[in-house]
Write a protein that binds this DNA or RNA. Structure first.
Lengths: 189, 189
DNA sequence: TATTTTAACAAATCATATTAGTTTTGTCAA
DNA sequence: TTGACAAAACTAATATGATTTGTTAAAATA
């Protein structure tokens, strides 16, 4: 019988899948290894332990999200582009709850890779806001504002912190509208 | 020599202190017990395990924050009140990082106590927005928007996800201004 | 084919949470 | 004052999962 073969990519992809389906809090090296058909020590040939796995998941997620955002923004500009990016962010966060939670939690690892991957993502945002005749400083503030709102909203929604499910879409829509209206006031400043 | 005596309150307070100083991820029953001068099994006379402890921390935090918010809003009304509440929220979240992270993470426990304690807090917010001649539905959306932004911003700031430290206060200030300006557009709707 | 590398494995170790059962301490009623 | 009792500490044991170590089999390379 041939040995089961895994590699870094399959480990991370399976971990992402499991995190999204059974929840990040139920993901362990033991269950992940079992799912892959190996024993948990074998995972150490591909990752550097449990914390490293979660960091990999975080990087994986930011890259995936970046792709989604790039796709979403194609052919759009200005406030339409901003709105589309926000919706793409939200959609990804809701559809990939497990991975998204690592993206929230493991942004504290201030290494090269991390800064690179998130800055790359928010650079797209940044470029759009700069096209709106808003000062560089204010663009930084705006990106932070949108990012804070988007991460906070998705976190709360994923944790069922909002009551009525139906109204959540309305809340998101209205919030984005308010943020964009507010942003318009910064034009020329 | 008399035995060391602890009770539920001292356990939770010490846990809160430790979470805020050494970080929630370094808090364990072992270290907490050591800090209190007892052995970890003794803690089970006062709490129901580690998960319960974190849930208690979460409740403790929301109650503390509620008090801060109430204090902050005294004598103020309308948008001044909203602004003051936002600053109080931010200040608490930054000064109590460990406890705040349990408040973010453990809002998924959808039990009575939890709903009660957060709804109580956001009811204050809610009352202020209603005084602004904004429809009930839109008040719900607004509270969610502010909450999302506030939790997201503090999460990111606490995790050093923003670069330049100095500009963070400016980002917060500008963001609140934008949110409030946007809110004004809902008056009469 | 012979050698080297890769990566899976079993077994052992470590850390922490948790449980079970024992002992100490203080309280309160007889 | 004393003896029963309850509360809450303790020790010892168990369970689970991460991690380390050392072994081995398969695959790759020369």
């Amino acid at each position: 019988m041939p040995k089961i073969k895994i590699d870094k990519e399959s480990v991370i992809k399976e971990a992402a899948y499991m995190a999204n389906t059974i929840g990040i809090e139920n993901l362990s090296l033991k269950t992940l290894a079992a799912q892959l058909g190996v024993k948990s020590p074998s995972l150490y040939n591909h990752i550097d332990g449990f914390d490293d796995l979660k960091q990999q998941l975080m990087l994986y997620g930011w890259k995936e999200l970046e792709n989604r955002i790039i796709e979403a923004v194609i052919g759009l500009s200005g406030y339409d582009a901003i709105r589309a990016m926000c919706y793409a962010f939200h959609e990804y966060a809701i559809e990939n709850q497990g991975v998204f939670s690592t993206m929230l939690w493991y942004n504290q690892f201030e290494n090269e890779q991390m800064n690179e991957v998130t800055s790359k993502m928010f650079t797209i945002f940044f470029k759009v806001t700069k096209s709106l005749n808003i000062s560089q400083d204010n663009c930084v503030h705006l990106v932070r504002m949108f990012r804070s709102f988007l991460e906070g909203f998705a976190l709360l929604e994923n944790h069922n912190a909002f009551g009525n499910t139906q109204l959540i879409k309305d809340s998101f829509e209205l919030s984005i509208t308010i943020l964009i209206e507010g942003t318009k006031k910064l034009e020329g400043k």
